[in-house]
Design a protein around this nucleic acid. Structure first.
Length: 295
DNA sequence: AATTGACACAACCGCCTTCAT
DNA sequence: AATGAAGGCGGTTGTGTCAAT
């Protein structure tokens, strides 16, 4: 690798390729290019992308053709808002596998790794930024597991109960869920919100406004729904649901720490913040726990 | 009406792995 | 076994859109 290529951040192989491909097109695809690519694949199939690009007469790299096909033109690609169920799955699978986008995408039919990656960056990382904590930190991960995911489950339930086109039928998952609905006969804001819209219009932000009243119930339900969505084998016996219960118990016995959040929240504009007091308190607890462990 | 900033998403880049020769 | 091309993947950037000012 010579200095020029090192400077440009290119390997020699890629650099030579670039020199050879100076007349290649870059940037957004035109309708004509899309049509050419689709037409060629319809007749000849996909694969061998470099030769495909040449034979189809496209002035694009094979990589570019492949990406365009997989992420946009493929007939079975799903577009549009990420559903609540998909959000829950993404959070769950990311907690297990990290940034293995293609692996995560395999469990969301029609969704591309690129789309999931973008979702994570634009939605999830944004919230981490607002909380002023690292997206990979334990605090943030715990918040996802013990607050956001239960809320997502709650909203999935509400949406399924309100919609005729249910994605999840609670009774087929867990009889407890029916009981939960009856016990929660107060119509809290989250239920009302979810009922007034279809399950496709939602994101994490909405979930963060609505703190569950009976969190233990939500963990039970969460476990059930996650099991249905991604299969029992993915739920660990020592998974986050149990840890959440332990955490909630310990936290309830230590409510005095809530006062400490004032100090912790210094610098945050609360009136404009998406996060409610429980989120902040939860994170503060995590910080305290970590500090105790260090000492 | 023009400007600006935030946001979502398409597309590219470079590294790594796999495959064919 | 060695080599180069192709493909896959995760990170990053570019661009269009829209709301707020």
């Amino acid at each position: 690798m010579d200095h020029q290529h090192v400077k440009a951040g290119l390997s020699r192989v890629d650099a030579n390729k670039n020199e050879d491909d100076m007349d290649l097109r870059r940037g957004p695809w035109t309708v004509e290019e899309d049509f050419t690519l689709m037409n060629y694949i319809a007749h000849h199939g996909e694969g061998r992308w470099n030769s495909l690009a040449r034979c189809a007469g496209l002035k694009r790299t094979g990589k570019s053709c492949r990406l365009r096909w997989l992420n946009y033109l493929r007939p079975d690609v799903r577009r549009g808002n990420i559903t609540l169920e998909e959000q829950l799955l993404i959070l769950e699978l990311h907690s297990r596998w990290g940034n293995r986008w293609s692996k995560i995408a395999q469990h969301l039919p029609g969704r591309t790794d690129n789309e999931i990656k973008n979702y994570w960056r634009t939605r999830v990382q944004k919230h981490a930024k607002q909380l002023k904590c690292d997206v990979n930190s334990k605090q943030f991960k715990d918040t996802m597991r013990y607050l956001w995911m239960p809320r997502l489950v709650e909203r999935i339930q509400a949406a399924a109960g309100a919609s005729t086109s249910k994605v999840i039928d609670p009774q087929t998952i867990n009889p407890n869920m029916v009981q939960i609905d009856h016990n929660n006969n107060n119509t809290n804001s989250s239920t009302a919100t979810a009922s007034s819209e279809n399950s496709f219009v939602s994101d994490l932000t909405d979930c963060c406004y609505n703190y569950p009243q009976q969190q233990q119930d939500y963990f039970q339900v969460n476990q059930s729904i996650s099991s249905q969505l991604i299969g029992e084998s993915l739920i660990s016996p020592t998974g986050y649901f149990h840890h959440a219960l332990e955490f909630q118990g310990a936290a309830a016995a230590d409510m005095d720490h809530q006062q400490n959040t004032t100090q912790w929240m210094d610098g945050a504009n609360f009136s404009d913040n998406l996060w409610n007091i429980e989120d902040m308190w939860f994170l503060q607890q995590q910080l305290n726990n970590n500090n105790n462990n260090v000492v």
